[in-house]
Simulated scan of single mutants.
Amino acid sequence: MWLNASCLLEFQIPVPSPFLLKLRPRSGRNQWIAREEYILSPSAPVNEFTDMFGNLCQRLVAPAGNFSVRTSVYVETADSSDTAPNAPFIEVQQLPDDTLPFLYPSRYCESDRFTEMAASLVRGYSSGYDQCTAIVEYVRNTIEYTPGAGQQIISATELNQLSAGVCRDMAHLGIACCRALSIPSRMVVGYLEGLVPMDLHAWFEVYVGNRWYTLDPTQADMNGGRIAIAYGRDAADVAIFSQFGNPVELLNMKVTVEQMSGPNY
C-alpha cells in the first residue's frame, strides 16, 4: 500500500537553540520512500549525518521566535506486518554483528533485572518467536495502554510497577524481557496507519529466524501499514527531536497518516 504521512512541530524559542532531529525515514526491506518534503520555517542551515543505528539525523540551530518543522513522506509499505510462529531462536554466537548492541541492558530497558520473570513468562513455549509473542501477550494483558498520558519517559522496571503506560513504555518492557532471553530487541518509532488517537507511535522488533520481526503490545493484531523513522536501544535513541540549552515550548504537534493510490509526481 501507499501511505502519505506528515508531522508538524511548532515551537516558541526564547533564544537560538541547538536541535537534533530524527524525522527522515529511510528506504529499506520493508519500506520504499518515493517522495518527501522537509520544511523549516524560518529556514536554518542543517547538517545531516547517519548515527550508529543507521538513522538519518539533522543538526541545526533554531532561531529565536516561532519556529516550525514540517515533514511529509510518500511511502510504499506492506498493509500488515509479518508474523512467524515457530521462527527459531538464534544462538548468540551465530548472530550478525549489528544485532549485538540490542542484547545488552540499556537506560530504559534493564534486561538484567528481568531474567527470572522472562523465563517464567515463556515456560512451555518454543525458543524464539513464540517466546516473544508470549511476552507481548503478558504486556498487553497486564499493562493498561493510556495513549497521550506519558510525558515523562519511564523504564521497563518502573512500568512493571505502575501497570499503565504509553506505547513507548510498553515497548520498553517487551524489549527488556526479550533481551533477558538473549533475543536481540530494538525500539522503533514511526507512523502506524489507523492508529487511534493519531500520533507518532513506538513498537519493537526482535531478531529470530535470521531476520527482524515487528511486535506491538498496544495493538490486537499486526494490521496497518507502518513507516519506521528511527531505530535504537530504547527511547533515548529514537527521540524525534532533542533540544539543548534553555528550554523551549512545544506549541503544537500534529501527525497524519493517509492511505493513497500512489505518489502524485
Rank of each mutant, 00 (worst) to 15 (best):
V248I: 15
D237P: 03
P247Y: 06
E249D: 10
I240A: 13
G224Y: 03
S242C: 10
L251K: 15
N252I: 03
D216L: 07
A236R: 12
A236E: 09
S242F: 08
T218P: 02
Y231D: 00
A239T: 09
G232R: 02
L250N: 05
A220M: 11
F244R: 09
N246W: 14
T214L: 13
V238L: 09
A228I: 07
V248F: 10
P217S: 08
Q243F: 09
A228S: 15
M253G: 12
T214E: 11
R226H: 07
A236D: 13
A220N: 07
D221P: 01
I229F: 04
D216A: 08
Y231M: 05
M222A: 13
A220P: 07
D221E: 06
F244H: 15
S242V: 11
D234P: 01
I229C: 00
E249T: 10
F244G: 08
K254L: 13
L250H: 06
T218Q: 02
Y231W: 08
L251A: 14
S242P: 01
L251G: 11
N223L: 15
N223G: 15
Y231E: 03
L250C: 10
N252W: 08
F241N: 02
V248G: 11
V248R: 08
D234C: 04
Q243H: 14
A220Q: 12
F244W: 15
P217W: 05
I240M: 15
L250D: 06
V238Y: 00
V238N: 05
E249Q: 15
A230V: 03
E249K: 14
S242N: 11
P217G: 08
P247L: 08
T218R: 02
I227N: 00
A220H: 09
L215I: 10
V248K: 06
A230F: 01
L215M: 13
I240K: 05
G225Y: 00
V255D: 06
L251I: 14
F241E: 05
M253L: 13
F241Q: 06
S242A: 12
G245P: 00
T214I: 11
R226S: 03
T256L: 09
A220W: 07
K254D: 15
L215W: 03
R226I: 04
E249P: 01
P247D: 09
F241D: 05
D221A: 04
Y231C: 03
N246M: 12
G245H: 03
T214D: 13
S242Y: 08
P217N: 11
N223V: 11
P217V: 07
R233P: 04
Y231A: 03
N252Q: 15
I240P: 13
D221I: 03
G245D: 03
R233E: 07
L215K: 05
A230D: 01
G224L: 03
G225V: 01
R233G: 04
D237I: 00
G225M: 02
L250A: 08
A228K: 04
D234Y: 01
R233H: 04
G224E: 01
A235L: 12
R233S: 02
R233Q: 09
G224M: 02
L215D: 04
T256A: 09
V238E: 06
A228N: 07
D234A: 03
R226V: 05
M222I: 10
D234Q: 02
D234E: 04
Q219F: 05
A235P: 09
M253E: 15
